[in-house]
Every structure is written in C-alpha cells, then in structure tokens.
Design a binder for these strands. Structure first.
Length: 962
RNA sequence: GCGAGGGUUGCCCAGCUGGUCAAAGGCGCCGGACUUAAGAUCCGGUAUCGAAGGAUUUCGUGGGUUCAAAUCCCACCCCUCGCACCA
C-alpha cells in the first residue's frame, strides 16, 4: 500500500471525484447555512499568489464550516467591468512590447494565443476559462453552477435594477467633481499617466474674498479661521496680475489674481473672462475690506508670494504664520513710498486668535525665535510653519475674538467655518494639487471640474449612520480593524459612479454614462443565488425590475411577477426560497486593499437596499503577498500565477504554504525555500499516515490504555480545541501550527515513548483536522483508511473538543518524565560525567502535603505563608520537619501564587504517584540516558551518598549521578 | 501631514488579560544515528557563562509603574499600508 507521495496524480483524482459527485453544489435543506464569499477576481491577467491567499482562506473556512455540519455555499464569478481590460486589448492589438513581454513571460500566455487577445471580449473569454481551471486545480470547493461575468446581459439587468433603485431613493446625485487633468491631452490623468507628482493629492483651499472698491482680491488658505487674524494682504510686485470677470451661479464679479491663477480658474466650474492686466503697483498699498470682520487692512509687497500658488495673493496673519511675521519684520523701517505707503509698518498690531499651550500670545513669533529663523528666505521658516500648524491644529482653541466660533478646537473648525463662508458668499472652494503634477506628455496638469458627474451620495450623514449601525452589529475579523472601518466610513465622500469609457452597464437613467466598476460590485453576492436559475435559459428581457423586487426584496406577489416577466411561478418561487435561505452573506473575506473602497461600498449598498436581516454578518481581512521580498505587479512583474504554483508544487503544498506563512492582516512573502519545506512536510505526513495504515493498526481507544496513550489522546484534544478556536478567528497559521506541526511532534514523541495503541484513532482525527487545509492528500489517506467511494473526508465531521479525553494526570506524568530527563541531561552536559547509574529521589511526603495544601488554600481562601506554616505544623507527622517547612513554604507560596489559571487548575487535582510513574518509565529514561536508573523516595532513600534527596520536590525529583 | 498596523532570539514568526518566558513552532546551521554514498528520515544542540539541574544579559531606543515587564504607561526612532474616482 505504501507508495511515494505523488501530488499531481492524487489531486487530479479527487478533483474529478468531487466534481462527479457534485459535493460542492449545495441546495437548501434543514441544516444551518453558511454563505461565504470572497471578491471575484478582475480578469486583466491570470490569477496570482495574492488571489491564491485570499481565495484559499475562503476555501479553508468553507471546508471547515462544511465539516462542522453547515450547509456551505462558496460561489465565484468574474469581474471585467471598467477600463483596464479595454486598455489591455488596445495594447495587445498595437503589440506594445512591454505588454507582450509581461503577458507572455510572466502571465505565461502561449505565443499562439496572446496576439489574438486583441479585443476585450476575447480577453474576458480567455482569462475566465484560465481562472476557473486554476481554481479547480487548487481544489477550491466552489459551486461552479453559479459563475458569471459582469458583462453578462442578465447581470446588466441586475445592475440596472439596482441603480434605478438607488436613484429612486435619492442616493445618486449629480454634481461637479475635481480631477487631475492634462490640458494638452484634454483628458483626466490616472496615476500611471503621471510623469512627476504621483503622490500629489487634490487639496481643498478656501478662497477668502477681500474687497476693494468693488474688486475682489481672493486669498487661498487651508486655515480659514485665521481670517480673524488678518492684518494685511501680501502682493508680490514681481509677478503678473490680471483682472478677470468671474461668473458663477448667476453672480458676476471682478477678481484680481495672478496670471497663473487665472489659467487654473478657467478649469473650475466658474465662467472666467480676461478683462485686462493689472500693474502690481496699483494693488499694493491699497485698503481692502475683510469680508468677515469688515475691517480694512492694507496690501503690502512680499517676495515670498508665488504666482502659481492659490490666487497669487496671500492674506497675512503674523500672529500665527511665521512667514507673515517674517515678511512684516522685513518691512520694518523700510521706505515704502514707491507704493504710496506712508504708514509705518511697525504700527501694525498682530491679532492672536488661537489659544495654544507651549506658545504665548503670538505662536508665530515664538516659533521664529525658538528656531532662530533669520528672515523669509531662511529654510527654517518652513519648519517653523509646520511646528505652529501642528501644535495649533492638535491643541489649539479659538479665542473670544472669533465671536460665535470661540471655544471650538482648531481641528474641528475648518468644515464648519467653510460652510458658513460659502453660504454667506464671502468664501469659495478652490482645489489645488498638494505638489505640482506633470503629465507623461510633459504638460503641467491642472485640477479640472468635471460637470454633470453622477455621484453615489456616500457623504450623506443619514446613510453613514445606518452603515455605522451595520458595522456595530457585524463580526469583524480581526477585531482590531473595526476602528479602521469606522474611520473610513467617516472619511468617505461622494463617489463618482459613472464614466465614459470601459466595459460595463449603462446608467439606466442617463445612458451616455457607464456605471463605474466598483459601483457594480456591491451586492452581487445575491446574484450568485439567482444566477443558478438565470443560467438555465432565462432571457435578459425577462429580468424585469419586478422580478428582483420580488425575489430580493419581497415586494409584490408571485402571480404578478410571473405575469410581468413571463417566467414560471414555480421558478420565481424557488428563486425567492433560495434567496431567503442563503442570504445574508455570513462572511465576506478579502484582501486588506479593499477595506477603504469595495468593502465599504459593499456595506453602503447593502444597508441601502436590503432589510436589516439581510445585512452581512461578518467581514474578514487578510494581508498581501510578495514574492521573495518583492512586491508583485500584474503589469510589471514579478508575478507568480496560481497555475504555476500548483503546477510546480501541487495544490496541497501551495495551500499549506500560503496558509501557514502569515496570519490575518500580516503580509506574506512567498519564498521558494519555504514552499520546498512545505512539500517535505506533506511527504512526511503522507508517509507517516501510510505507515500507520499499513501496519494494520485499528482503533485502540476501547482497549486498555497506558499512561502514554492517555497522554496522546489528551494532547490531541488540546490541539483540536486550539485548531477550532483559531479557525473561528480565521487564524490559519495558528490552526496549522496546531493541526499539523504540534500534532506531528506529539505523534513522534508518542511513538518514541513506545505508544501505538491509539495511533489509528489519532490519524483518524488528524486527517479530518487537516482536510480543510490540504484536502486532496487527506482524501487519499481517508480512502486508504478504508472509507468507501463516496465517503469523502471533505464531508466528514470535523473533530471537536471532547473534554472526557483530557487527562491532566497523564499530561503531568509525562511532564514529570520529560523534565526529569532534561534535568539529567543538563547535569551531564555541565559536569561532563558519563553516569554509570542515575538515582532519582521523589518528593518526600511532607513536601507533597505542603504543595497540595497550598494549592487548596489558594483555591478556597487566601494563600498566606504564615497560615500555611501554621496549618502544616498542626499535623503531627509534619513536625519533624519544623526547620525545613518555613524555608520550603517561602519558595512554594510565590511559585503557586504566580501560576496562570490554566496551570493552576491543572494542578489543583494533583495526585500523582511519582514513584511508580518513574519506575514504570525507568526503562525509557534508561534508554535515553544510557545507564541504569534507580528510583527512591526522599522519605527513606536506601542509597544517598551525597544527600541529594533533600532537593526533591513535587514534580521535581532530586537527582544523583554516579 | 492624517489614519491603521508593525519592530522578539541567524531568518520567518508565536507570546503581549504582567509571574513555569532565555521566550512555542517552522526554516537554517552544527553534531550524531542510519546508509557503500548522497538524499530522505530520526535524535541532540543552537544568547552567554557554569564540574549538579544554576547564574547572568536579552524582546526598536530612552524613561516610568510594580515585589515582578517582551507583556502596562510616557516620549522618541524606524518600517509597511491606505488617503479615492483606479481596479
């Protein structure tokens, strides 16, 4: 029977048996259901190691739950909507060298296939076939009857229904939206189109509209609250300024800004018209009105003002902005008569508006002094600015001179104040990059307002509140990321949900737009359930809204739905029954990259569309996978495809490796050396199992059990418990640590100690324990154990913790033997003597009594050394040891007190006959050490030349080597 | 900058409701057994010192709390990820 482990052969065999017997095609029944999904893959390439991790975690959870007795549904589909597949088709059609190289060399697409993948449809067809093959070859327990692609006509009907519904509920709104834009290409730029400034973000500045003689001088700021502290404006005499006409919302104004600002403004949602150039001198030295306070302030010259930042005109808040303070200082005692300024700048009084600890009245002044900043050209000025900003933002509170805003924390003021400024017409939003952005074509980019854009209204506080409630009641694995989810909901803004380009479904109420691909992937888990029916010949035009309304929402009646759609009443009723049985999603497991987008949208759409009882029950998140320390990239490499991994190492080895290499949100690093060792582990497991089977072993659990057998069974229970605990929290690494490595070591020790009676029973549990992780090899072993044709281990009951097999005494006894052995070995090592004889002295009776009494006292009352000594001395047989008792107690009490509860409970019932345990296992010890072993009790040692017996204590026999 | 997570013994990492923690497991390395030999397998070792089961110094850095800290608190340094209209 024993043969070499041949994964390819075994895996193929069991995959086809599973397929033939349809074990993974569940139908509703009386069992509890478990509906697990992972995000379907986006098909612009082959499945890779990253998918392998997420999908395998899903499969292991599915298999574990199935063996625990749940009716498990694990479905899969393919995501193809959006632009990347279209882009890829174009690149292949044009034979782009890099693309051709990456897709042939790294994605391993055969040379006779690749050039023909020149349309999106062909790409989708090719990769969906490949993906399914790969997932089958790694042994996922997927119900393939339900698969679909997001461009299926029936799926599009489902998406249309969903978007109409959201539109009707007012959750899809129209508005303007800022994007990175290349004026040369006349197109939005995506990250890969950017030459410089990939890290730039779009920042929302507030324009404060200062006024002079009907003319507006807008000043851009990130800190609108400082409007209360403005003492003057800054105008750079060396840059060009223009006067422009700005129309917005039926309002017409004249602004003065830098020429660059004028260019940028033309891309905003304002109508802008050039009027004339403005000599800088004419706007320096004038009085402008602070629109909020009504106070008049002067405009002064400053060289630090850049034409390209904001409007090119800056408001000055010297109390809180180091640059402003420095610039004012630079003007002290300067002759400004060329600008017509006769006032002394020294007379300008600083206005402090923020109270912050660590700084006095004027934080900017303090910071400049602290850092020793010289003037506005000093690089440390930047540092001082950051310092002040940080302290004020985190610890600052607005002072009384801010009127109605007094007492508000600086960190909270921006949104409130901006809203007020906007509504009063004295402020406007102006978007700007955090750093300059240059397109690949070499043109500097601008922020462009796309008008008429459709948005999912995720910023709605009411919508968010429901999502918070949903998260509150969900299980989140691991628990630590719950706060992350809440933060992200808080941060989420409206999301543009339609584009002009790509594959997908048209927005039903505005068909020139295509639904963006994250929006069409939010509630599709429900589609797996209906698609089982749709794929059997239902026509797209029969998928009327009434059908989805009835099946998914329970609205309307079967008869009406049947009449409306022309579908059979029974079919519709079955669909609804299936949906009601399987929904909601019990667990959505995903990579952590999807936390701030897909998983969030998944929640938003579920709570918007479904009743609370259909909201998802749990979400789990796992980390990324790198290759030999390098980040994977679909488009640049390196990449390891699932097909390659399985082809090289086999399904079970790949599964075992990826599941054991990292835990939960930690990132995993796929290393060849590691997979190699996983392969050896599988071989070892297989060999050991086959040895046990071919030795003719059978269940020995009913027969007479020795100490070591009871130890083995007890250990097995601990492992079973830990494995199940780990699996409940999706800690696959920990689960394998127990179910494989620790158990393997225990079995080895068991055999070494001469155990064999329960080997078969252990194997029986072990195979089932391992089946979710490495199902093929386990089926093979299971079948070798005599299970019949359709008796799959995949469907066998998973081992669960049985307390009746836990045997504390057996574990303690084994611990005694092990500890004694290692003590002897250590003595040998240190003394370098080669013992002819080893003598062991077990604890004297009085010490054992003291030990037990101490445990009992701690359990029942409080363990106090004095009390313990008193009680011990009360017993006549202890009195001879009057001198030793206090000494021993002094050591014993802290030992016992510092025990962990588990350990304490294990020892509480302590009642070992150490004498006979050591005698019975003397042979084993003798073999290990290689000399004769004598065992005496320290009460009356027959042989004790060096009086070693005095060191004997419970569970710690004294040792004398000769 | 903001938010989240992390820094442990040669490596990957477990431990982190404070005490059996010099710290599990795996890998690697060293030694041994087996073998004609290699591989596989098995056994032992793998911080330092130690002629008796012990002692000493370790868990990013620096402080602190405590009888006791890898574990708790504070500060700092470093790393990874996300910050969107892109799947």
């Amino acid at each position: 029977m024993e043969q070499d482990y041949n994964p390819q052969e075994i895996e193929k065999k069991w995959q086809s048996r599973w397929n033939e017997s349809r074990v993974f095609e569940p139908e509703p029944d009386e069992r509890d259901k478990f509906f697990i999904t992972i995000p379907y893959p986006y098909l612009n390439g082959n499945l890779h190691a990253g998918h392998t991790r997420t999908f395998t975690i899903g499969d292991v959870v599915a298999r574990h739950r199935r063996m625990l007795g749940y009716n498990v549904l694990y479905p899969m589909g393919f995501h193809v909507t959006g632009t990347p597949i279209v882009g890829l088709a174009e690149l292949i059609a044009s034979r782009d060298p890099q693309t051709m190289d990456v897709y042939s060399r790294l994605h391993k697409i055969p040379e006779d296939v690749l050039p023909f993948l020149d349309t999106p449809e062909k790409i989708v067809d090719y990769f969906s076939v490949e993906a399914e093959l790969a997932m089958r070859s790694i042994g996922y327990s997927i119900d393939w009857r339900r698969k679909f692609t997001t461009t299926d006509p029936t799926y599009k009907k489902f998406i249309e229904w969903q978007f109409n519904l959201l539109h009707d509920k007012g959750l899809i709104v129209k508005g303007s939206h800022p994007v990175k834009w290349c004026p040369h290409d006349n197109n939005p730029v995506e990250d890969h189109d950017i030459l410089h400034g990939e890290n730039a973000t779009i920042v929302d500045f507030t324009f404060i509209k200062f006024e002079h003689d009907g003319l507006i001088l807008p000043c851009a700021t990130l800190r609108p609250e400082t409007i209360f502290g403005v003492t003057n404006l800054w105008v750079n005499p060396d840059i060009e300024h223009v006067r422009i006409k700005v129309k917005q919302g039926g309002k017409e104004e004249f602004w003065v800004v830098s020429r660059e600002a004028y260019d940028k403004l033309t891309y905003t949602d304002r109508e802008v018209e050039f009027v004339d150039n403005v000599p800088s001198g004419s706007i320096i030295g004038i009085k402008v009105r602070n629109p909020l306070t009504g106070k008049e302030v002067i405009t002064l010259p400053a060289s630090f003002v850049k034409a390209g930042n904001g409007s090119g005109i800056v408001m000055s808040v010297p109390a809180h902005a180091p640059y402003d303070y420095l610039a004012i200082k630079d003007l002290y005692d300067k002759d400004l008569s060329e600008y017509g300024i006769t006032e002394n700048v020294r007379d300008i009084e600083f206005i402090s508006l923020i109270e912050v600890k660590d700084f006095g009245e004027y934080p900017a002044v303090d910071a400049v002094r602290q850092l020793g900043v010289e003037d506005q050209k000093d690089p440390r000025a930047e540092e001082a600015t950051k310092l002040v900003y940080r302290r004020e933002f985190h610890g600052g509170v607005l002072k009384d001179n801010t009127g109605e805003y007094a007492g508000i924390a600086v960190s909270k003021i921006k949104d409130v104040l901006t809203r007020d400024l906007l509504s009063r017409g004295i402020g406007e939003i102006f978007y700007e990059f955090s750093e300059p952005v240059v397109c690949r074509c070499g043109t500097p980019c601008v922020v462009n307002m796309v008008k008429g854009q459709w948005f999912l209204n995720y910023s709605s506080p009411e919508w968010k509140d429901i999502v918070y409630r949903c998260i509150e009641n969900m299980e989140i694995i691991p628990e630590e990321i719950r706060v992350e989810f809440k933060n992200k909901v808080d941060w989420l803004k409206d999301k543009a949900c339609a584009r002009k380009k790509g594959l997908g479904t048209r927005l039903p109420f505005d068909t020139e737009w295509l639904i963006e691909s994250l929006g069409d992937s939010t509630i599709y888990m429900s589609y797996y359930i209906t698609n089982k029916f749709f794929s059997q010949g239902v026509l797209p035009e029969q998928l009327k809204p009434s059908l989805f309304d009835y099946v998914l929402l329970g609205k309307g009646r079967v008869q009406e739905t049947a009449a409306d759609t022309g579908l059979d009443e029974k079919l519709i009723a079955d669909m609804k029954a299936d949906f009601d049985y399987w929904y909601p999603v019990d667990l959505r497991s995903s990579g952590k990259d999807l936390v701030s987008n897909h998983l969030l949208f998944f929640l938003f759409h579920h709570v918007a569309i479904f009743d609370e009882d259909k909201w998802p029950r749990a979400m789990a998140v796992n980390g990324f996978v790198s290759l030999e320390g390098e980040k994977m990239s679909k488009s640049k490499g390196p990449i390891l495809t699932m097909k390659e991994a399985v082809g090289t190492y086999g399904a079970d080895v790949s599964r075992m490796y990826i599941l054991s290499s990292a835990e939960q949100t930690q990132d995993a690093d796929w290393r060849n050396a590691g997979v190699e060792s996983a392969r050896k582990q599988m071989e070892r497991f297989y060999k050991l199992a086959m040895e046990i089977i071919s030795s003719g072993a059978s269940s020995g659990i009913e027969g007479e059990l020795h100490l070591i057998d009871r130890w083995m069974l007890s250990r097995l229970q601990q492992i079973v418990r830990e494995t199940n605990n780990d699996m409940t929290s999706i800690r696959t690494r920990g689960a394998l640590q127990n179910a494989f490595f620790l158990l393997y070591n225990d079995v080895k020790w068991y055999q070494r100690r001469g155990g064999s009676a329960v080997l078969y029973d252990v194997l029986d549990s072990w195979v089932r324990l391992m089946a979710p992780f490495t199902p093929h090899i386990c089926e093979e072993i299971w079948s070798a154990m005599g299970h019949g044709e359709n008796d799959f281990v995949s469907m066998a009951p998973y081992p669960i913790f049985c307390p009746e097999y836990v045997d504390n005494d057996a574990e303690l006894a084994e611990e005694l033997i092990c500890n004694t052995l290692s003590d002897i070995e250590e003595i040998i090592k240190v003394t370098k003597i080669r013992p002819k004889k080893a003598v062991l002295y077990t604890s004297p009776a009085w010490k054992t009594r003291a030990f037990k009494l101490a445990l009992k006292m701690l359990h029942e009352e409080d363990l106090d050394p004095g009390k313990l000594i008193k009680e011990l001395m009360a017993e006549p047989e202890n009195r001879h040891y009057g001198k030793e008792i206090p000494k021993y107690v002094q050591k014993l009490v802290p030992d016992i007190k510092s025990m962990k509860t588990g350990r304490f409970e294990m020892l509480l019932g302590f009642d070992l006959d150490e004498q006979s345990i050591l005698r019975e296992n003397g042979e084993c010890l003798a073999n290990e050490i290689g000399c004769q072993i004598d065992v005496y009790t320290a009460d009356s040692p027959e042989y004790d030349p060096e009086n070693k017996s005095r060191f004997a204590a419970p569970l710690r026999p004294a040792i004398y080597l000769e």
